[in-house]
């Protein structure tokens, strides 16, 4: 089976155009990362320089990996059921587009803004810490291994959340239910990244590589599995073919 780039790009571009003109989606994309960032930032700003030693032990900024786990889940959970509810899904499914292409376009449209937002928020947090935190605190928080982990795990976590979100979306008949389930499904990823950030789960190179390989496999399998679950008849009529 060959994937048509043009059809994937058509879905991707259409989605981005819709995001730009849908203030509620833009607001959801913007507010969640800020909630993740603001509260811990205030706590970091209040820390005295003497707390630098204890900060150096942990991987505090890894909690920001919650953003690529949560934001794409919200968008992806809307992607299929949202179109179905708007009545725009049937015309798309009557075109020659394959299920795999449709899903890939939808996934990319969730992936690109989510990853961009995640990196932007991470950069913003680093800049704020650098400018406003006590000098010892800032140097304790800036770690090369955390930067590598952010760069590596942000797209991997986003990919996993997206496929789970799209799978839920393709099986749901209500947008709200899909988004709630999508958020719930992203919580395990948030929990793991938070536990690693606060050193409850001790971060090591082996653990990092293991988790990265696992997520990569899940991301690739996710596309295949969700594509296999994609059922035009069910999406159009609500009945299984």
């Amino acid at each position: 089976m060959s994937v048509s780039r043009r059809r994937v790009r058509a879905v991707f571009r259409k989605e981005l155009r819709e995001y730009r003109r849908n203030t509620s989606i833009v607001a959801a994309m913007a507010v969640l990362p800020l909630i993740f960032a603001i509260n811990p930032l205030i706590a970091v700003f209040a820390l005295p320089a003497s707390s630098a030693d204890s900060l150096a032990q942990g991987n505090t900024l890894l909690y920001l990996l919650g953003i690529p786990a949560v934001v794409p889940a919200l968008i992806a959970a809307y992607s299929v059921v949202g179109e179905r509810q708007q009545g725009t899904l049937e015309p798309v499914l009557t075109t020659p587009i394959r299920g795999e292409e449709f899903l890939l376009g939808k996934a990319l449209a969730s992936f690109v803004p989510s990853v961009a937002i995640s990196f932007a928020v991470y950069a913003l947090v680093l800049a704020c810490v650098g400018v406003f935190a006590a000098p010892g605190v800032a140097s304790a928080l800036f770690k090369g291994r955390e930067l590598v982990a952010q760069v590596l795990f942000t797209p991997l976590l986003a990919g996993w959340s997206i496929w789970v979100g799209i799978a839920i979306s393709a099986r749901s008949s209500d947008v709200r239910v899909a988004q709630q389930l999508g958020m719930l499904a992203s919580l395990p990823s948030v929990a793991v990244s938070t536990l690693v950030a606060y050193d409850v789960i001790h971060a090591s190179l082996g653990l990092g590589i293991g988790l990265a390989v696992l997520l990569l496999v899940l991301d690739v399998l996710g596309w295949r599995i969700v594509s296999a679950m994609f059922d035009r008849e069910r999406l159009i009529t609500g009945s299984k073919s």
Binding site: R7, K14, R17, R21, T95
Partner: peptide
């Protein structure tokens, strides 16, 4: 939310 032309562009691309 898309213009008439944007709708047609999307579907034209889906039909290649």
């Amino acid at each position: 939310r898309l213009s008439v032309t944007e709708n047609l562009e999307c579907f034209g691309d889906l039909y290649e």
